[in-house]
Computed example of a mutant assay.
Amino acid sequence: MTGVAESAAPPWFTDLFAHRRWIRRIEPFPHIYARDVFVPEFYGRLAEELARVRGERPEAFGSVAADYGAVGASLAGLRDGPLALFLSREWHDMVARVTGVAATGDVEGAVHHHAPGSPPGSPHNDLNPAWFKGSAPGPGEVRTVDPEVDLATGPRTPEVFARETVRAVAVLFYLGNPDWRPGDGGETALYSHLGTNPVPAVTIPPLDNSLVLFECTPRSWHTFVGNNATARNSVVMWLHRPKDDVVRRWGGDSIAQWH
């Protein structure tokens, strides 16, 4: 098990958590799983905010990727409510600490909505490049994706300075799925290896107020199972590390380029 929300964090942050210990699993690759992450009052606020945004701001949700069945609303546009927690430096530093990753303070993320019957995804490891505008954030700052910078390819104009990073930690927090039951589909599958028709080694159910997070490595293979009987909602986000760190550890060819 692993400690979270240590006393060094401010009370407003530590008081949001229902307990202080999450489960650290080794197989099929190192990941951390937790149930009942937040106290009921704060989880209720998160779920209500998701329902409000989906009801009042449907235009905030757009296609996530050509080969991905979800629509998403960027966390950067949802800073006026409780979902802003996921862009706080306190959350960033806690996730970096429990995974042992020296992250840069650069964060991307969104609320994802899979409609019932969404197609399954393809296994991937999330070890992708990501560009952020300006110099590295300071110790108390968080930098999100800037419109002047394409996340996958860098500055949109020559006069804009941006840094290339690589996704370092993936976080999936499940919320707004009260009707989900075993057999409904829509889990997150984790794989020990790939090949023809790979079989998941572990499936993570999209239970409300639960999460899974893991370091992005060449073998952190995962995907959305799909064929969900009910809608599946989640917060999906990434912390980042300098590209040089990845090159030194696994080589430049390990970085999964965007297509």
Results as ranks from 00 to 15, higher is better:
M1L: 08
M1D: 12
V4E: 05
V4D: 04
A5P: 07
E6Q: 12
P10Q: 08
P10L: 08
P11E: 06
F13Q: 03
W22R: 03
R25N: 12
R25F: 11
F29I: 05
F29N: 03
P30W: 00
Y33P: 00
V39G: 13
V39C: 13
A47L: 03
E49Y: 11
A51W: 01
R52G: 12
V53D: 00
V53F: 08
R54T: 09
G55W: 05
E56P: 04
F61R: 06
F61I: 09
G62H: 08
G62F: 04
V64T: 14
A65S: 15
A66N: 14
A73L: 02
L75W: 08
P82R: 02
L83A: 02
L85T: 07
S88F: 08
R97N: 07
V101Q: 13
D106K: 01
V107H: 05
H113L: 13
H113E: 10
H114N: 07
P116C: 07
G117I: 02
G117R: 02
G121P: 04
S122I: 09
D126R: 03
P129D: 04
S135K: 11
A136M: 14
A136R: 06
P137E: 11
G140E: 15
E141P: 03
V142A: 00
R143Q: 10
V145F: 08
D146A: 12
E148F: 10
E148M: 10
E148I: 07
L151I: 15
T153E: 15
G154K: 02
P155V: 13
R156I: 14
P158Q: 09
V160Q: 03
E164I: 04
A170P: 03
V171D: 02
L172N: 13
R181I: 07
R181C: 09
G183H: 00
D184W: 01
A189N: 10
L190S: 00
Y191T: 03
Y191W: 06
P198V: 04
V199R: 14
A201C: 10
D208E: 12
N209P: 04
N209C: 06
E215R: 14
S220M: 02
W221M: 04
H222R: 02
G226S: 11
R232Y: 00
R232S: 03
R232D: 05
V235Y: 01
V236I: 11
K243Q: 12
D244Q: 14
D245M: 10
D245T: 13
V246H: 01
V247C: 04
V247Q: 05
W250H: 12
D253F: 07
I255K: 04
Q257M: 14
W258A: 01
W258D: 06
W258Y: 13
